[in-house]
Amino acid sequence: MNPPSLNDPTSRRGFFQLTLGWLAAGFAVAASSAAAMRFLVPNVLYEPSLRFKAGQPDDYAESSVTFLEEERVFLLRQGNTFRCLSAICTHLGCTVNRASNGYHCPCHGSVFNEQGTVLSGPAPRGLEWFSVTLSKDNRLLVDKSQRVNAGQYLVL
């Protein structure tokens, strides 16, 4: 003989309570898991920022290519236009050198032209251009997280 059912399904109150209970418990479990996952995603980073200020426009000569060592970029000025080129070779990450009409990587010999396009060597693609804007306090603001096309530049 089967024992009487442990639950009393004919009791609507029991049904309602169970439903509500399992829903609440299920929600609590799901929400806690989601919270734990979100917990693991950092909100602040202690790495050097990808956005940095590169000084004032007038710090750069009229027609110049300036290497910013710490940030590993070149800042180019032509008249009143400003551009920023990454100095990190797309092959294996060495810092490229400025050559007479382009850039040259000392590690495996990749050669790039003034636009950053690969001319020869093992690099798979051209050097990256980064966005340059003007900050509120009149400083050049480079954002290495924003890549732009070779043709884009900041005009003052």
Partner: peptide, 8 residues
């Protein structure tokens, strides 16, 4: 059929 819905 008699079991509550979570069980089913």
């Amino acid at each position: 059929m008699n079991a509550p819905w979570p069980s089913r």
